[in-house]
Amino acid sequence: MEGRTVNTILLRKQLSDDVYLMRINAPHIARERLPGQFIIVQLDNEYGERIPLTIADADPVEGSVTIIFQAVGKTTHNLAEKQVGDTIQSVLGPLGQPTHIEKFGTVVCVGGGIGVAPLHPIVKGMKAAGNRIIVIVGARTRSLVILEEEMRALADEFIVCTDDGSYGRKALVTEPLKEVCGRVPKPNLAVAIGPPIMMKFCAESTRPFGVPTMVSLNTIMIDGTGMCGGCRVTVGGQTKFVCVDGPEFDGHKVDFDNMMQRLKAYRKLEDHAHNQCHLDAEIREKERSRS
């Protein structure tokens, strides 16, 4: 064992308004991680919360993992404020079952918003396994499209769409997805990662075509090792733990409505913390401008 993982931030890039990329020094995780896996991050070991974040890439030689996250809550906002050279107190991983990768034939990979980040290593893996790759990337608007170059380089066919038509097709990802599924021969597998509502409708889109659809779920977690069950979802009528049974499941069997309700479990409490966090930032800003 060559000593402790230091969790230092090696690179920080703001990809859009509230989306950030960070490369973290985490040699153990970089060495072991496989596509589909995630990490849990905690900024303060006394009072901080533990949040799951997807791994966008890893470099085992450098000993680094790359995360892409959206600053939506208190912890992600605070994480976004960290700079190169800062360290993150706790980084745990890689967690979850790795993606099942083999030569399926044609795989259509759909990424929505920052869902493109965890999709990236899966596309890489699927491509390396000899699959023909169709990538569909969707975002609200042009500035929110991430990893476009990386995905273009891997894809045999690349489709981009935005809700407002500012870039690529003006459409939701489900539109091109249905078209692709309607082709002969139809794709052998669909992979959809993004906001729960997007994954739900992707699964509904592929269902009539009988295209197996894998989704990757990002639920509320504490330990990430099966201990708490807070991440549980209903899949095919059975309770599954996202952290140890997932994060990937058969999209046609996931009870998305229940999952979305569970994601909102702490919304009220979080809004309060979030507002407080914005207030604190404003106060800091004012103090800074004063001094």
Binding site: D223, C228, G229, R232, T239, F241, D255, Q261, R262, A265
Partner: peptide, 25 residues
Amino acid sequence: GLPKFMNMEGENLVGVFSANEYLTR
């Protein structure tokens, strides 16, 4: 470390916790 559930209807509703989760929080 793997909490048991009862496999009853409604067990995954919001506000239902394993004791492990509640106590860990």
